[in-house]
């Protein structure tokens, strides 16, 4: 259990800048993210793309911007909880919030800033009825241990690098490997694709997509596939590895006591206050009329929410306002003195 002034849900660019904005006001933060690394969409979806509309940065690679934001936040020594989803929120009688993460740990905070973007990043699950029941037994979204696939009749669904690479490495482990993909082309390293196509042990089923799971809810006996635009067929199989990348999921915030549209949290413009006192939402997840979903908008919202959080953490205490040029930043002040 740790105690901080402000808990920030989401370590995307906006959550990271919120650490700095809070730090400037003397507030210590903990930041949670479902992903193992900070950066949100920039890390998960486009680390190599250049961004051109960050004020003062004519061009910056997404991954580089994340590294810089982490460095900027480091001055205020945030606690990072990565690879862990924020699941539950409770409030003590004195107004302290308790956030429980999916690993079972708890953060105590006086204010909460939700910078959840499009939701907690996790596997993009195919919408097959009953799929949850098979997860981690017969349906997997990543390979943690090769041994789980030993001797199984495996279907790999997807057409990217991970589908191709796992098909190649699991042929020697699984009893059978069938790759189901919606088209003949694979968006993967050409040499690996050629190797997969040449391997007689790998059965390629294109252009096909997943259509259903057949089993008793515990054990899978077959997987239904559908030719794109055509008929369904049954593949005898007892294991599915579904590799469709990442997607955001906001469902774990549904019971946190603030209004939540399906994909956004309505907030008051400027203060970023949600409908629950002491909880603020910023960045892509926060919605108000005229909202622009841009990184720079989120940065400004972070600065505003930090001020509101200050008032919540220090009720009745006036906020002495200073620019960063006057206030300085811990590490840099030390550097300047040393120089």
């Amino acid at each position: 259990m740790i105690r901080v002034d402000v808990a920030i849900v989401g370590a995307g660019p906006v959550g990271l800048f919120a650490v700095f904005a809070c730090g400037q006001l003397g507030l210590r933060c903990a930041v949670l993210d479902a992903l193992p690394d900070p950066g949100g969409q920039l890390t998960a979806l486009y680390p190599e793309k250049p961004i051109y509309d960050i004020p003062g940065r004519p061009t910056v690679r997404a991954g580089e911007l994340v590294a810089d934001l982490v460095q900027q936040a480091a001055a205020y020594d945030p606690v990072y909880w990565l690879g862990q989803r924020a699941m539950a929120l409770a409030e003590d009688s004195d107004g302290t919030f308790r956030i429980t993460g999916s690993a079972g740990e708890t953060i105590l905070a006086r204010a909460v800033i939700i910078a959840a973007g499009v939701g907690a990043f996790g596997p993009n699950r195919p919408p097959l009825p009953g799929i949850e029941a098979y997860e981690n037994r017969a349906v997997f979204y990543h390979v943690a241990q090769l041994e789980r696939f030993r001797g199984r009749k495996l279907v790999i669904a997807g057409g990217g690098d991970s589908a191709v690479d796992w098909a190649l490495s699991l042929t020697g482990v699984a009893a059978e490997v069938t790759v189901v993909h919606r088209r003949d082309d694979f968006r993967a390293h050409p040499a690996s694709v050629a190797q997969m196509k040449a391997d007689p042990r790998i059965r390629l089923l294109t252009p096909y997509q997943l259509a259903g799971l057949v089993g008793d809810g515990v054990t899978l006996s077959a997987i239904e596939v559908e030719r794109i635009g055509g008929a369904r067929e049954r593949l005898e199989a007892d294991c599915l590895l579904a590799l469709f990348g990442l997607t955001g999921d906001l469902s774990s915030l549904a019971s946190w006591g603030f209004d939540l549209d399906r994909k956004t949290i309505p907030v008051e413009p400027v203060t970023c206050a949600t409908s629950r006192k002491g909880i603020y939402a910023i960045g892509d997840v926060a919605a108000y009329p005229g909202k622009l979903k841009l990184i720079l908008t989120g940065f400004a919202e972070a600065a505003n929410a930090a001020r509101e959080a200050y008032a919540r953490v220090h009720p009745g205490k006036a906020l002495h306002v200073e620019h960063s040029t006057s206030r300085g930043v811990p590490g840099f002040q030390a550097l300047e003195r040393a120089g």
Partner: peptide, 13 residues
């Protein structure tokens, strides 16, 4: 666009 369609579901021709 084709690459992104690879991770969509419920596809038709």
């Amino acid at each position: 666009e084709e690459d992104m369609l690879d991770v969509a579901f419920n596809l038709k021709p």
